Amino acid sequence: MTRETVSAGSAGTWQLGDLTVNRIGFGAMRLTGRAAFHQGVARDRSRVIGVLRRAVELGVNHVDTAAFYFSRLRSANELINSALAPYPDDLVIATKVGPARDASGEWTTPARPDQLRGQVEENLRQLGREYLDVVNFRRMGQDSISEHFGALAELRDAGLIRHLGISDARPAHLAQAQAIAPVVCVQNSYGIDSRASTEMLHTCAAQGIAFVPFFSIAGEGREAGATHTEREQILAVARAHGVSPARVRLAWVLRQGQHVLAIPGTGNPDHLTDNLAAGALRLTEEDVEVLDSINCAAP
């Protein structure tokens, strides 16, 4: 592997409202087990806490989480609280609301607008915070998000939330939200082989809004992780630089614009340092041409 700088600051910074964050952050979804949510084997708690603390030591100041990130034995928010509280002054914790799970971990009907306060308060309780830095409304198939986003705007006005964002959204949903309150970020699935959100990527760039892609490493594996057979184009670029395919995937995502914030997640300390080193990987124009040529519909 090449000896590139291992720092979350190597890719530069961006603003989430009045909050400055390094462009490489940390996603908490996979902290609770080897597969998403309540499936799979729980990770070693002490090791995960060590990964979180190491991430902050290496400059991560943007952590993405949610109260519905839990398994039978682990809660992402509880792990973050245990590892990082009292929180560093510059640490920005972004959460999501909208989806709902019961105590057994089964998905239930998404939250109504009047139920979002309860979800916000649950995140506050688990994280041990008086207010949440950023709350994203995760759209669950709604054509209009105005009523839900309006409920969150009221909670922002009440001082429970500092900034608002949206997730799994299209430009029309962004316009609906902006008619109610400022939007500081959009979280959508996006990566080399998952580019359905390209229009939103460009819309956010034009408006100076952070675009926060998820599943950038997992690709089609989504919540299950990077279970796919890696594409030859990505392997070729990785071999040329002496780095991992995951690092190539993240470097490509970061290259899509200064407004792009990566949030790779892992419970493995070696994967953590590899992910953070992506900010120092300089892809050549030839590399980008090879990666851009990937047919997203192909296996």
Score class of each variant (00 low, 15 high):
Asp133Thr: 01
Val135Trp: 02
Val135Ile: 08
Phe137Val: 08
Arg138Glu: 14
Met140Thr: 13
Gly141Asn: 07
Asp143Pro: 00
Asp143Asn: 04
Ser144Val: 01
Ser144Pro: 03
Ser146Tyr: 00
Glu147Cys: 00
His148Val: 02
Ala151Lys: 00
Ala151Trp: 06
Leu152Glu: 06
Leu152Val: 06
Ala153Tyr: 06
Ala153Leu: 04
Asp157Glu: 14
Asp157Met: 03
Asp157Ser: 13
Ala158Glu: 15
Ala158Val: 11
Leu160Ile: 10
Arg162His: 12
His163Gln: 13
His163Cys: 10
Leu164Ala: 11
Leu164Thr: 10
Gly165Cys: 13
Gly165Trp: 10
Gly165Pro: 10
Ile166His: 08
Ile166Met: 12
Ser167His: 11
Ser167Val: 13
Ser167Cys: 14
Asp168Tyr: 03
Pro171His: 11
Ala172Thr: 12
Ala172Ser: 15
Ala172Phe: 11
Leu174His: 13
Leu174Trp: 12
Gln176Glu: 15
Ala177Phe: 12
Ala177Trp: 09
Gln178Tyr: 06
Ala179Ser: 15
Ala179Val: 05
Ile180Tyr: 02
Ile180Met: 02
Pro182Phe: 01
Pro182His: 04
Val183Lys: 10
Val183His: 13
Val184Met: 09
Val184Cys: 14
Val184Lys: 04
Cys185Val: 13
Cys185Ser: 15
Asn188Ala: 10
Ser189Val: 13
Gly191Leu: 12
Ile192Gln: 09
Ser194Glu: 14
Arg195Ser: 09
Arg195Lys: 09
Arg195Pro: 12
Ala196Val: 07
Ala196Trp: 08
Glu199Arg: 14
Met200Ala: 10
Met200Ile: 03
Leu201Glu: 06
His202Arg: 13
Thr203Ser: 08
Cys204Thr: 13
Cys204Ser: 12
Cys204Ile: 01
Ala205Asn: 03
Ala205Glu: 14
Ala205Val: 00
Ala205Trp: 02
Gln207Ala: 15
Phe211Leu: 05
Pro213Cys: 08
Phe215Val: 10
Phe215Arg: 05
Phe215Met: 11
Ser216Pro: 05
Ile217Gln: 04
Ile217Lys: 00
Ile217Asp: 06
Ala218Met: 05
Gly219Cys: 02
Glu220Asp: 09
Gly221Asp: 07
Glu223Phe: 15
Glu223Cys: 05
Ala224Met: 09
Gly225Tyr: 03
Thr227Met: 00
Thr229Gly: 10
Glu230Gly: 01
Glu230Lys: 00
Arg231Val: 11
Arg231Cys: 03
Glu232Met: 01
Gln233Gly: 02
Gln233Glu: 15
Gln233Leu: 02
Gln233Asp: 09
Ile234Arg: 03
Val237Gln: 08
Ala238Gly: 09
Ala240Glu: 15
Ala240Val: 05
Ala240Asp: 15
His241Phe: 09
Gly242Trp: 11
Ser244Gly: 03
Ala246Met: 03
Ala246Thr: 02
Val248Arg: 05
Arg249Tyr: 00
Arg249Phe: 05
Ala251Arg: 09
Trp252Val: 12
Val253His: 04
Arg255Ser: 15
Gln256Tyr: 06
Gln256Thr: 07
Gln258Lys: 10
His259Lys: 02
His259Met: 09
Val260Ser: 11
Val260Arg: 02
Gly265Ser: 07
Thr266Pro: 02
Gly267Glu: 08
Asn268Pro: 10
Asp270Asn: 04
Asp270Thr: 05
His271Pro: 04
Leu272Trp: 12
Thr273Asp: 11
Thr273Ser: 14
Thr273Gly: 02
Thr273Glu: 15
Thr273Cys: 14
Asp274Arg: 00
Asn275Ala: 03
Asn275Tyr: 11
Leu276Lys: 03
Leu276Tyr: 03
Leu276Gln: 01
Leu276Arg: 00
